[in-house]
């Protein structure tokens, strides 16, 4: 674990308080997953309404409200990136050191790396959650109530 922390430090500006951000992001992910449980409520309501001759609403309709939080993440990350660039001009002009580094992209890398990792993690998390919900949907919805046009291909649903 210590090695992971040490490695992550290389993905942020030196001395930057990224651990606090990491805690916030983990909290954000937890809340996002909890909100996604809304899917089960929507699913339950739809199941109750389905008559023997009716179809279930498509999977995409049921999850529509459950994954809205991920849409806000790029805005948060844009702010994090901006804060990182600001950091190099805060208190001292460490920007002068960053601009003198022989590694050409080090300065920008340290501003972008973790926010991009956070976004990719969020996308991965939402894909995994969607996949689990879709498997649940396919298992629970009887074939007779399967909505016309609803894909059964997992990848086409989660991507």
């Amino acid at each position: 674990m210590k090695r992971v922390w040490h490695r992550l430090e290389r993905y942020s500006p030196p001395g930057y308080e990224w651990k606090e951000e990491l805690n916030l992001i983990v909290g954000y992910f937890v809340v996002a997953v909890l909100i996604s449980f809304w899917f089960f409520r929507e699913f339950q309501s739809a199941m109750n309404l389905v008559s023997p001759s009716a179809y279930m609403p498509p999977f995409e309709v049921l999850i529509k409200k459950s994954f809205f939080m991920i849409r806000f993440l790029p805005f948060h990350m844009a702010r994090y990136i901006w804060l990182r660039y600001q950091y190099f001009n805060k208190e001292t002009k460490s920007i002068y050191l960053m601009l003198r580094l022989p590694r050409r992209f080090e300065y920008h890398f340290r501003c972008w790396a973790l926010p991009v990792i956070f976004i990719l993690s969020a996308i991965l998390l939402s894909m995994v959650t969607k996949a689990i919900y879709f498997l649940f949907y396919t298992y629970m919805v009887p074939l007779s109530a399967w909505p016309p046009g609803q894909s059964m291909n997992l990848w086409s649903v989660i991507l």
């Binding site: 500006p13 030196p14 001395g15 930057y16 308080e17 208190e91 001292t92 002009k93 460490s94 920007i95 002068y96 050191l97 003198r100």
Partner: peptide, 12 residues
């Protein structure tokens, strides 16, 4: 480069 504005990282 050494500058009176300082180019180090204050938290380190």
């Amino acid at each position: 480069f050494a500058t009176s504005e300082h180019s180090f990282f204050p938290n380190l």
